[in-house]
Simulated scan of single mutants.
Amino acid sequence: MPASKRDHRRLLVGSLDPLSSLATPKLGNTATARPFGREHRQPIDRNRELARCLRRETYDMNVPTHITDGPERQMLEYMLDHTRAELIDTVRGLSETESRRRLVPSMTTSIGLVKHAAFAERKWFQHILGGLPESECDGAMVGEASFVVSDNETVADVIAEFERASNRARTIAANIDLDATRGHPAVGTVSLRWIYLLMIQEFARHAGHSDILREQTGATRRT
């Protein structure tokens, strides 16, 4: 992984389909971009940038400075998509063996972190926000056991599972107000805003975990 990419991740204290959830909000004509290490401000066309993101052209979700202001919901969804992208980025290019390598005393692995993130998407968006019974969620609802990846699942399989769960989360949340609340059996009353903030924290934290594991894996390759 290029050093610059790791440096940006550390600076941002963070960790899939970028910006697909931003198709709904009304965007202004311009935004202000402030690249790292530069004093000047450069106006950009926000709608044009969004279109480029959705076409997966040159947008780099690892440096989220293209949209730095805007409505609260737009910024929350933008940063959530950024952390989703960062987490996936930590496992791309790893072999199946490397992705499962245990380099810490716990059962944490790079592929297991992405598997767990897919569970978190289902738990908070399908079950809590959407009100679906756990039996109707489109994947296993197994809590801490969600870190376990079966032998027949590949890195590509787990990434695809996370992407499906993220896409469904966007669909469920799209027409729900940030102030709308739901009940959680342990936490109590939570709003969609709180769920967004929780998921940003969760995925950023796990992307940091996985980034360290990847650096350790890279070190073993060189020895």
Score class of each variant (00 low, 15 high):
S191P: 08
I212K: 05
D60L: 05
T83V: 15
S110K: 09
L103Y: 02
R41D: 14
A169K: 03
S210Q: 07
L12A: 13
H206A: 01
G139S: 03
S110M: 14
L132N: 00
T32D: 10
T30G: 03
L198A: 04
E72P: 07
A180S: 15
F162V: 02
R214G: 02
A169Y: 04
F147H: 12
V142S: 15
V91S: 01
H206N: 03
P25T: 08
L80K: 04
I200T: 05
G143R: 03
T109R: 03
S106I: 10
L192Y: 00
L103F: 02
G37A: 09
A180L: 03
R52P: 09
R6L: 15
G131I: 08
A51C: 08
L103W: 05
I128E: 00
V155N: 00
S20F: 14
M79I: 12
R41T: 14
S210G: 06
T32L: 11
N167I: 09
D7K: 13
N47P: 04
S110P: 13
E134K: 11
N175L: 04
R164S: 06
T189K: 12
S150T: 15
P43D: 07
S15R: 10
H82G: 07
R34I: 15
G208L: 05
V148K: 08
C53H: 03
H206R: 02
T217C: 01
S191Y: 06
A145F: 10
T58M: 08
L113T: 10
E49K: 10
T24I: 11
L198I: 05
E144D: 15
A51H: 09
D151C: 03
L103P: 06
G93N: 04
L94W: 04
H209D: 09
N167A: 10
A3T: 14
L19R: 10
G218F: 11
M141A: 02
F162G: 01
D17R: 13
K123T: 07
A145T: 08
Q201R: 05
M141E: 01
R38C: 13
S166K: 02
C137V: 14
E202R: 09
G14A: 12
P71F: 09
D69W: 10
E144I: 13
L94Q: 03
H40V: 14
P43K: 07
E121L: 01
M1F: 12
E49N: 08
N152V: 04
R182T: 05
A33D: 07
S106N: 14
G130I: 03
H209S: 04
L87T: 06
G188N: 00
I88F: 06
T171M: 01
G130H: 10
A31N: 13
L213I: 01
H206M: 01
L11I: 11
T108E: 00
A33W: 10
E86K: 14
A186T: 15
D81H: 04
R6P: 11
E57F: 09
S21V: 06
V158D: 04
D45T: 07
K115W: 14
D138E: 14
E98D: 15
R168Y: 00
R73K: 09
F125V: 00
F119A: 02
H8N: 11
H82D: 08
K26E: 12
L11A: 14
K5T: 12
W124P: 00
V190R: 00
R193K: 15
I128H: 05
P71R: 10
G183C: 08
H184C: 03
